[in-house]
Amino acid sequence: MAPVAEFETRRGWLFGLAYQLLGSSAEAEDAVQDAYLRWDRADRAAITHPGAWLAKVVTNLCLNRLTSARATREQYVGEWLPDPVPTDLLGPLETAEQRDSVSLAVLVLLERLTPAERAVFVLREAFGYGHREIADVMELSEANCRQLYRRAAQHLADHKPRFQPSREERERLAGRFMAAAQHGDLRALEELLAEDITSWADSGGRLPMARRPVTGRDRVARYFAGAWRKLPDGVDFTFAEVNGGTAIIATVHGTTMGVVALEFDGATIAGVRIVANPAKLSHMQGLAGS
């Protein structure tokens, strides 16, 4: 197989790995491109297992980026959320655990980990690597990788995957949520929301949105009823599969202006994450009407 073609067969997988390590689609694209440049310059005759070699390169590139990214995010205006990405760009997600691993909720939790803990956890949980394989990627002992994994799992111990209804049911609930918000129907909104619901909004300080989480059924219902009334004319809404779940996509003249990712727990909405920072929506363009 030609070198370029061999790399391209793995590009989607490598993007998924880099994205879960970084939480930024743009940085993930850059890391994958840097990996291609190294692949292009490498002595490929000496590479016995191209997939393992590329996974190691991408992981190390991301580890370097994570250190500087953390410092940048500490200066971020308002809530920081990962870039939303269409689910189909994240590779085959065959199990509920895999879909949960790419959710915005889990990616936010991964920010609690050190770069090494995050890499070990992602390789183990999302990509099914064994500890020996992870040790080869990380150039650490197997015992050290097991310890990093245990520490990462302890940091994320409070996260319990919620019961996800079918895609059809999620879209039905999302439609009810959107209709209730548009009509300012507080009672209908409250019927849909979990009592302990939290809503986060990330505009990077560019839009007049809540800079702190809004918590509680009553407050979140009022927040969305009020926010919908302030939307400009010409905003269209559609649904899309984003980060393994259902999201409402807001567009104006075909340009995506915001993503409202909904987190479900059975028949209730347990969390809402709004991403409206234009710098984070590059992978969400062109989804209107999907």
Score class of each variant (00 low, 15 high):
Pro3Leu: 08
Val4Thr: 11
Ala5Arg: 13
Glu8Phe: 06
Trp13Val: 13
Trp13Asn: 10
Leu14Ile: 03
Leu17His: 04
Ala18Asp: 02
Gly23Ile: 03
Ser24Lys: 01
Ser25Arg: 06
Ala26Arg: 13
Ala26Ser: 15
Ala28Trp: 00
Glu29Thr: 10
Glu29Pro: 06
Val32Arg: 00
Gln33Leu: 14
Asp34Trp: 13
Tyr36Ala: 05
Arg38Pro: 02
Trp39Gln: 01
Arg41Val: 09
Arg41Leu: 12
Asp43Gly: 05
Ala46Asp: 06
Ala46Asn: 08
Gly51Leu: 11
Trp53Cys: 02
Ala55Ile: 09
Lys56Cys: 10
Asn60Asp: 15
Leu61Met: 05
Leu63Ser: 05
Leu66Gln: 00
Leu66Pro: 00
Thr67Ala: 11
Ser68Gln: 11
Ala69Asp: 09
Gln75Val: 09
Gln75Glu: 13
Val85Lys: 00
Pro86His: 01
Leu89Pro: 03
Leu89Gln: 11
Gly91Lys: 05
Gly91Met: 06
Leu93Thr: 04
Ala96Lys: 09
Gln98Pro: 05
Arg99Gln: 09
Asp100Thr: 10
Ala105Met: 08
Val106Thr: 09
Leu107Trp: 01
Val108Ala: 12
Glu111Ile: 01
Glu111Arg: 10
Thr114Ala: 09
Ala116Trp: 10
Glu117Ser: 07
Arg118Gln: 04
Ala119Ser: 01
Phe121Pro: 02
Leu123Ala: 00
Leu123Met: 04
Arg124Asn: 12
Ala126Leu: 01
Tyr129Glu: 08
Ile134Asn: 06
Ala135Gly: 00
Ala135Ile: 01
Val137Trp: 00
Glu139Thr: 10
Ser141Ala: 07
Glu142Val: 06
Asn144Trp: 15
Asn144Phe: 15
Asn144Tyr: 15
Arg146Cys: 07
Arg151Trp: 07
Arg151Asn: 10
Ala152Leu: 04
Ala152Tyr: 02
Ala153Leu: 08
Leu156Asp: 03
Asp158Ser: 15
Asp158Gln: 15
His159Met: 13
His159Asp: 13
Arg162Lys: 14
Phe163Ile: 15
Gln164His: 12
Ser166Val: 06
Ser166His: 04
Arg167Phe: 14
Arg167Trp: 15
Glu171His: 11
Gly175Trp: 02
Arg176Glu: 14
Ala179Glu: 13
Ala181Met: 04
His183Ala: 15
Arg187Cys: 11
Ala188Ser: 11
Glu191Asp: 15
Leu193Thr: 05
Thr198Ile: 14
Thr198His: 09
Trp200Gln: 12
Ser203Trp: 00
Gly204Val: 00
Leu207Ile: 07
Met209Tyr: 10
Met209Cys: 12
Met209Ile: 14
Ala210Thr: 12
Gly216Lys: 02
Asp218Trp: 12
Val220Ser: 02
Val220Gly: 02
Tyr223Asp: 07
Phe224Trp: 13
Phe224Gly: 06
Phe224Asp: 02
Ala225Lys: 03
Trp228Gly: 07
Lys230Tyr: 10
Pro232Cys: 02
Asp236Ala: 12
Thr238Arg: 08
Asn243Met: 09
Gly244Met: 01
Gly244Glu: 01
Ala247Gly: 05
Ala250Trp: 04
Gly254Tyr: 04
Gly254Asp: 01
Gly254Lys: 03
Thr255Asp: 13
Thr256Asn: 03
Met257Phe: 12
Val259Glu: 04
Val259Ile: 10
Ala261Asn: 14
Asp265Glu: 13
Ala267Tyr: 14
Thr268Arg: 13
Ile269His: 07
Ala270Glu: 03
Gly271Tyr: 06
Val272Pro: 01
Ile274Asn: 11
Ile274Phe: 13
Ile274Gly: 07
His283Pro: 10
Met284Glu: 08
Leu287Arg: 05
